[in-house]
Design a protein around this nucleic acid. Structure first.
Length: 493
RNA sequence: GCGCCUUUAGCUCAGUCGGUAGAGCAUCGGACUUUUAAUCCGUUGGUCCCGGGUUCGAGUCCCGGAGGGCGCACCA
């Protein structure tokens, strides 16, 4: 911390003390009777002209001062609340000498409550003519450059409060995220789904392959994992007869961090009894179209250099059909481990340890780059889908799809395996894999097998990475730009 | 984990060939009763990310380390 910053803070602190001495002590203020917000005021008076003089009613607005333009015996300022910006105009002859002297002790960043009426300034801007003001909080720390704002990405993440306070686009992204998730909940509730909450702390983190975070419960002297999926508990709810359930919850995976991965992220998981994956696909399409409409009425979503159309119907293509179309690769080649390995070599990709891994690599290389518009890729190979049901007439293929857009996987859904014997065998196979040293394979959850033995109806399930969906809908390149407080390494102060 | 880039005033950024630190904004003082990146005059402000090395001399060159960004690998 440099001397100069301390000087800046000291100057603001001395302004605060002078304001307190003049009867403007923000610490003595417990409430402010806000009766309007900036954008609403501007909208209400859009047709207001200079000839209209001073408008009605008397407004009381509160927010943060982000610009102060003193001009002798007057002051223009910008007050920002959660809806936007409102210009203020303060005059000495109106406020009186004492109050006007006090407002000269205001600093950029201070929170202010103001009383006043609207007028149109000489330059045509709707402006609040302030008759009284109340200091609600003092900003002791100086705010970043008013023109360039806070640009340093590291500081934006570490001090997100500053980022939010002065970068309107950033605040808009998080407001939009909130509206998207709220709209998603309404959509699901309207479709007769129950929102449920399942444990975050588990003895066995299952339902996916990922390294969990470990923690400990003192009261039970018990080692616990943070969940890596909500899948198994949600299916227990289906066994219990809730029929349609979802959870929008935080998931924790102790893995890498990059522009598309954060150690904690939010996932929607949703299960519907009596649906197959094909009903789920229609529902998925309707949900995403609905959310896109919230962002852009025409469902045309700009992302980077492109514009993505979320108008239904979305493109649908078979898994093998996609390989055939984009790489002239045959189903037979893909389904044989040797054929897949040969394809890897032809594309200059390092050999894969397993057939499934090879197929994943090949898909990323050959097909994914072509999936720009929202596209359902259907009918996955069984080897890629250990928890999905087979197609009745095609034992190598399962009832599963993934939804892609701009090369990102947005959703993964399948008809759920509900055969307890099959589930038990797959857990036993996982025990083998663990014994061979694959630490990402979860320990078996035998109670889940018991739950299936009580009977689970045919059910479709889907997982949607909320952060990535929000990235796409809000046109953000990094997952950290849709997570308020992304994990950062500590830095010495 | 690997590679590339990056770190200079509160903020945004310059800094040439290695010669001892600069601008704009902000701060502080002054002028200004319709400004809006207000303007004008003046003023203050530095652990050049950290630690070594080379050199008469390092923000600059070399080595090591830290934070951050991007890409690859892994994953959703």
């Amino acid at each position: 911390m440099s001397d100069t910053l301390e000087e800046l803070i000291a100057a603001r602190r001395s302004n605060l003390e002078a304001l307190q001495a003049a009867g403007h002590d923000p610490l003595a203020v417990n409430r402010y009777p806000v009766n309007a917000h900036a954008s609403d005021i501007l909208a209400t008076h859009a047709a207001f002209t200079a000839e209209d003089g001073l408008g009605e009613p008397v407004y009381q607005v509160a927010g943060r001062l982000l610009s102060l333009r003193y001009q002798g015996k007057t002051l223009f300022a910008d007050l920002h609340d959660r809806t936007g910006r409102l210009q203020l105009y303060l005059r000495r002859d109106e406020l009186g000498d004492e109050a006007f002297a006090a407002c000269k002790l205001l600093d950029r960043g201070d929170f202010l409550g103001v009383t006043g009426r609207i007028f149109r300034s000489k330059l045509g801007e709707l402006t609040l003519r302030v008759s009284a003001f109340t200091l609600l909080a003092k900003a002791l720390q100086p705010l970043p450059d008013k023109w360039h704002g806070l640009v340093d990405v590291e500081k934006r993440y570490r001090r997100r409060y500053v980022d939010l306070a002065i970068n309107a686009e950033v605040r808009d992204v998080f407001i939009l995220r909130s509206r998207i998730v709220a709209s998603m909940r309404r959509f699901l509730d309207d479709a007769a789904f129950f929102e449920v909450e399942t444990p975050t702390l588990l003895q066995v983190a299952g339902g996916a392959s990922a390294r969990p975070f470990r923690t400990h419960a003192n009261a039970l002297d018990l080692q616990l994992d943070l969940r890596i999926a909500t899948e198994l508990n949600l299916k227990r709810c289906i066994v219990g007869g809730l029929e349609r359930v979802y959870e929008i919850g935080r998931i924790f995976r102790n893995e890498g961090i990059d522009t598309r991965h954060n150690p904690e992220f939010t996932m929607l998981e949703l299960y519907a009894a009596y649906w197959s994956v094909y009903e789920m696909m229609d529902f998925n399409e309707a949900l995403f179209a609905h959310l896109a409409q919230l962002v852009h009425a025409d469902r045309q979503i700009p992302y980077g250099e492109r514009v993505i159309s979320f108008r239904p119907p979305f493109a649908r293509i078979g898994y093998f059909e996609a390989f055939e179309r984009y790489g002239s690769v045959s189903r037979e080649e893909l389904l044989s481990p040797e054929g897949a390995a040969g394809l890897l070599a032809r594309h200059g990709i390092a050999p894969s340890p397993t057939h499934a891994h090879a197929l994943d690599k090949l898909f990323g290389e050959i097909v994914e780059p072509h999936l720009i518009e929202p596209t359902f890729v259907m009918d996955y190979p069984l080897v890629l889908s250990p928890l999905a049901k087979r197609k009745p007439n095609d034992p190598d293929v399962v009832e599963r799809y993934e939804l892609f857009a701009v090369g990102m996987e947005l959703a993964n859904a399948f008809s759920e395996l509900n055969d307890p014997a099959d589930q038990r065998q797959r857990f036993e196979a996982q025990i083998e894999e663990r014994a061979q040293g694959d630490t990402e394979v979860p320990a078996p959850d035998w109670d889940f097998v018991r739950a299936l033995e009580y009977g689970m109806p045919p059910t479709a399930g889907i997982g949607v990475g909320i952060d990535r969906l929000v990235m796409l809908l809000t046109n953000q390149a990094s997952i950290r730009d849709v997570i308020l407080f992304p994990l950062q390494r500590p830095v010495a102060e």
